[in-house]
Amino acid sequence: MPDVIAADGTIRNDDWVVVPRPAAGESMDIPEDKPVLIPADLWLAGHEHFAGKPSVGVWFDSHDEPELLGEKVNELPLIAVNFPRFVDGRGYSIGRLLRERFGYRGELRAIGDVLLDQLQFMKRCGFDSYVLRADKDIAKAPKCLTFFTQTYQAATDTDQPLFRRRAS
């Protein structure tokens, strides 16, 4: 199993299994003995069955809209956002919307094509855990999360831009 990096730079084992979207006409193969992340729309379709289970979270693909879950967002212990390619920035918007518009308070994880130089920007958008692409050195992750000491803009981690913070 891959390791997961927390926003504070700690590295731990990742127990969550990402269940891929089944092909048309097939059913999901969900392991019974491990916590799972299933596609968000399929969780919503089976809400009565999955709701309230601490071992079931969801994952969004980059083209999914967070509005899909709406007020049910805080029923989930973990939401992962898939970054299919490092140049696809839609996941940043999904993370920020989940935190700011929908008030998601659980763990928000970046998965997929996650690179070291993206970690601090993902953190600013509300992500608090990350699964790096397999060919990246996880030992470098803690430094990448704190590479910049100051930020100019407001984001999920600070509600004031730098010029206002300096003025106060």
Rank of each mutant, 00 (worst) to 15 (best):
residue 140 K to W: 04
residue 146 T to V: 13
residue 110 A to M: 11
residue 157 D to S: 11
residue 165 R to W: 02
residue 133 R to Q: 13
residue 68 L to M: 15
residue 38 I to Y: 06
residue 81 V to E: 14
residue 154 A to C: 02
residue 104 Y to I: 06
residue 30 I to G: 14
residue 50 F to M: 12
residue 142 P to M: 14
residue 57 G to I: 00
residue 87 V to K: 15
residue 19 V to L: 07
residue 92 Y to K: 12
residue 157 D to G: 14
residue 156 T to P: 00
residue 82 N to T: 09
residue 49 H to R: 15
residue 13 N to F: 10
residue 21 R to P: 01
residue 30 I to A: 15
residue 8 D to Q: 02
residue 143 K to Q: 15
residue 165 R to Y: 02
residue 131 V to I: 14
residue 103 G to F: 00
residue 22 P to Y: 05
residue 146 T to G: 11
residue 56 V to W: 01
residue 120 Q to C: 10
residue 77 P to L: 10
residue 155 A to M: 06
residue 95 G to T: 04
residue 29 D to V: 13
residue 3 D to E: 15
residue 105 R to M: 07
residue 124 R to T: 05
residue 2 P to K: 12
residue 94 I to N: 09
residue 76 L to A: 13
residue 69 L to K: 08
residue 160 Q to S: 13
residue 27 S to Y: 00
residue 65 E to W: 00
residue 53 K to Q: 13
residue 131 V to W: 11
residue 40 A to C: 05
residue 72 K to S: 13
residue 158 T to W: 03
residue 16 W to H: 06
residue 11 I to L: 06
residue 106 G to W: 01
residue 34 K to Q: 08
residue 61 D to L: 02
residue 106 G to Y: 02
residue 55 S to T: 11
residue 137 D to P: 02
residue 37 L to P: 05
residue 52 G to P: 04
residue 168 S to E: 12
residue 12 R to W: 00
residue 82 N to V: 03
residue 78 L to N: 06
residue 76 L to D: 04
residue 22 P to R: 14
residue 114 V to C: 12
residue 156 T to W: 00
residue 20 P to V: 10
residue 90 R to S: 07
residue 4 V to L: 06
residue 27 S to F: 03
residue 90 R to M: 10
residue 26 E to N: 14
residue 75 E to D: 15
residue 3 D to N: 11
residue 9 G to V: 04
residue 103 G to T: 03
residue 108 L to N: 03
residue 6 A to G: 03
residue 111 I to E: 11
residue 147 F to Q: 15
